[in-house]
């Protein structure tokens, strides 16, 4: 569904990611793993249209999106759950969802909103609260819900677990699994290797902007320590 071909991207003259090629099949979860500054977020933001592509191609569903503006990508079916959530803090929960569905017809908003509320009943209770005043977990739910309002065929999720309580992380990953089972394609950036491996169909490990390992999630699960070796980690050190 998503294909990156020799993608290099970065900020100004800086190159954050070198020559990355990968394919995310439809209905699967693809995890990008790596240490801080490895280029995971740059990759996902390049796919979303917010980081400049310096070389290579981004292809989504057979269409070349390399030079498409961010605004057009959401209409193609890509929706972003960004690092740090980046909700519209002054807007209420419900208004954040309205903005999430802005690329779809107005009539679709109530139905999609109810689906999000089914997925995260907590958000229904907080529908009139300002997004900025909610707890981190609730904000993460809203960030996922906002992305779902765009009726995406693929979700780009950056650091869903960062700074959240394990219970909330379980809930979020549970939802991601459920969405995949319903046919959603997902690209996931994670610092928590264990969390990512538990759900990923395919894995790519980045180090300083270069690919050091690509394989299936199954291989990685069957060989504990494989990914850690590429990350240069001891299993005990992986506390996240």
């Amino acid at each position: 569904m998503l294909r990156l071909e020799n993608l290099s991207c970065g900020y100004g003259p800086m190159r954050a990611v070198h020559d990355l090629s990968l394919t995310v099949p439809e209905g699967s979860v693809f995890a990008l793993i790596g240490a801080n500054g490895a280029g995971k977020t740059s990759t996902i933001m390049a796919v979303a249209g917010h980081v400049a592509v310096q070389a290579g191609r981004i292809e989504f569903d057979g269409e070349d999106l390399t030079d498409a503006p961010a605004m057009a990508r959401v209409r193609q079916g890509l929706a972003l759950v960004p690092e740090g959530r980046r909700l519209f803090g002054d807007l209420s929960v419900e208004e954040n969802l309205i903005v999430g569905g802005y690329a779809r017809p107005k009539e679709a908003t109530p139905g999609n909103r109810d689906k999000v509320f089914d997925l995260f009943p907590r958000l229904a209770e907080r529908r009139n609260q300002r997004a900025g005043q909610m707890s981190g977990g609730e904000q993460q739910m809203l960030a996922i819900g906002r992305a779902l309002m765009a009726e995406p065929r693929m979700l780009l999720i950056d650091e869903v677990s960062l700074g959240l309580m394990p219970k909330v992380v379980d809930l979020c990953f549970g939802v991601i699994g459920r969405l995949r089972d319903e046919g959603m394609t997902v690209m996931l950036v994670e610092q928590s290797t264990q969390r990512a491996l538990a759900i990923a169909d395919n894995v790519c490990v980045l180090e300083s902007g270069r690919t050091v390992y690509q394989g299936t999630g199954e291989d990685a699960r069957d060989n504990p320590g494989l990914i850690d070796a590429y990350l240069g980690l001891d299993r005990q050190e992986d506390v996240a």
Binding site: G49, H50, L91
Partner: peptide
Amino acid sequence: TAWRASVTDPQMAQSFG
């Protein structure tokens, strides 16, 4: 609502169309 969202975070507003 879209207007206020653009004031808060223009980049994310673009990301949602």
